[in-house]
Simulated assay, not measured.
Amino acid sequence: MRVATATDPGHALRPNEDWVAAAQSLIVVLDGATARTDTGCVHGVAWYAAKLGSTITGLAVEDDRKLGDVLTDAIGITARMHPECDLHHPATPSATTALIRLTEDALQYLVLGDTTVVVETTDGIEVFNDDRVDTTAQAERAEANRYPFGSAQKQAALLRMKHAELALRNQPGGFWVAAADPTVVTHAITGQIPLAAVRRLAVLTDGAARLVTMFDLLDWRGVLDVLDEHGPTELIRRVRAIEAADPNGTKWPRNKGSDDATAVYAN
Rank of each mutant, 00 (worst) to 15 (best):
M1R: 00
V3I: 15
A6Q: 05
D8T: 12
A12V: 14
R14M: 15
P15V: 14
W19F: 12
V20Y: 01
A21L: 13
A21C: 07
A23S: 15
A23T: 15
Q24M: 11
L26A: 05
D31Q: 02
T37V: 10
T39M: 03
T39W: 03
G40H: 04
G44H: 03
A46M: 05
A46W: 02
A46G: 04
L52Q: 00
G53T: 10
T55E: 06
T55H: 03
I56P: 03
L59Y: 05
G68H: 07
D69W: 09
D69V: 11
D73S: 09
A74D: 06
T78W: 02
R80C: 07
M81L: 13
P83Q: 14
D86F: 04
L87N: 11
T92R: 00
P93G: 10
T97V: 14
T97W: 01
L99T: 00
I100W: 01
D105K: 15
L112W: 00
G113S: 06
T116E: 01
G124Y: 13
I125L: 11
I125S: 07
V127F: 06
D130V: 07
V133A: 06
T135I: 13
N145K: 07
F149L: 10
G150V: 12
A157L: 12
L159F: 11
L159D: 13
R160G: 09
R160W: 06
E165N: 07
L166S: 02
L166R: 02
F175Q: 03
V177N: 01
A178P: 00
A179E: 00
D181L: 06
T183K: 12
I189T: 13
A196K: 15
A197K: 15
V198E: 03
V198S: 06
L201N: 01
V203M: 05
D206Y: 04
D206A: 09
F215A: 11
G222P: 02
L227A: 03
T233G: 11
E234T: 15
I236Q: 00
R238K: 12
D246V: 10
G249Y: 03
T250P: 07
T250E: 13
K256S: 15
K256E: 14
K256A: 14
G257C: 15
S258Q: 13
T262E: 02
T262S: 14
V264P: 00
Y265T: 08
N267H: 12
